[in-house]
């Protein structure tokens, strides 16, 4: 076939579509193909330059962001105001999911470290679809609940471990008293 024509009639490969990308996210693993195409119309595609602040600690948080391309750095400030990086996120990661279900302030700041394409899913839209399409909203929220409870378990385990070890000197004294 003439390359010109093949170029015109070339369909966008499935792998390039937003729906396909959303399907790769564990949060949306319950969603079927059709649901993913619907989700495409709900989420917000935003383009960021390198070094742009996405949100800072204490901002009102209203939803989660998925990293479709680029890198995002999550950081907070210690007691002396020094910036300490917590984690680097790459394609397929997401952040801010704790504020999707209930309003809360952002616990850390996020900024891009290179040119990024982020996908936002916000609480306002979730409320909207939970009224109109409860099935889809249900699948997303169950995915979110599963993810959050996994993390909670992990955090509880780590907390237990840390408590068992304890800070060596003070904890030792307490044990002597008891």
């Amino acid at each position: 076939m003439n390359p010109l024509w093949s170029n015109i009639f070339r369909k966008k490969p499935e792998e390039e579509s937003l729906a396909y990308f959303l399907g790769t996210i564990p949060l949306f693993s319950d969603l079927k193909n059709r649901d993913l195409h619907f989700l495409e119309s709900i989420v917000h595609q935003r383009h960021y330059d390198a070094g742009e602040v996405i949100f800072t600690e204490g901002d009102p948080g209203t939803g989660l962001y998925l990293v479709r391309s680029g890198k995002v750095s999550i950081y907070n400030h210690d007691a002396y105001g020094k910036r300490c990086s917590l984690v680097q996120l790459v394609q397929g990661d997401f952040f801010g999911e704790t504020t999707l279900a209930a309003p809360a302030n952002r616990a850390a700041s996020a900024r891009t470290t290179e040119q990024c394409e982020l996908i936002g899913l916000f609480r306002a839209d979730m409320e909207e679809i939970s009224k109109k399409y409860p099935m889809i909203a249900n699948k997303i929220l169950v995915g979110l609940a599963r993810l959050l409870s996994e993390r909670l378990h992990l955090a509880a385990q780590q907390l237990n471990k840390a408590q068992a070890q304890g800070p060596p000197d003070q904890d030792g004294e307490v044990r002597k008293d008891a």
Partner: peptide, 22 residues
């Protein structure tokens, strides 16, 4: 509404979106 909200800069986008909804 979505289009108009989408015109706001990245830094304030999330807040504008939520406020417009409320």
């Amino acid at each position: 509404i979505r289009f108009s909200v989408g015109l706001s800069p990245n830094r304030h986008y999330e807040m504008v979106h939520d406020l417009v909804h409320l």
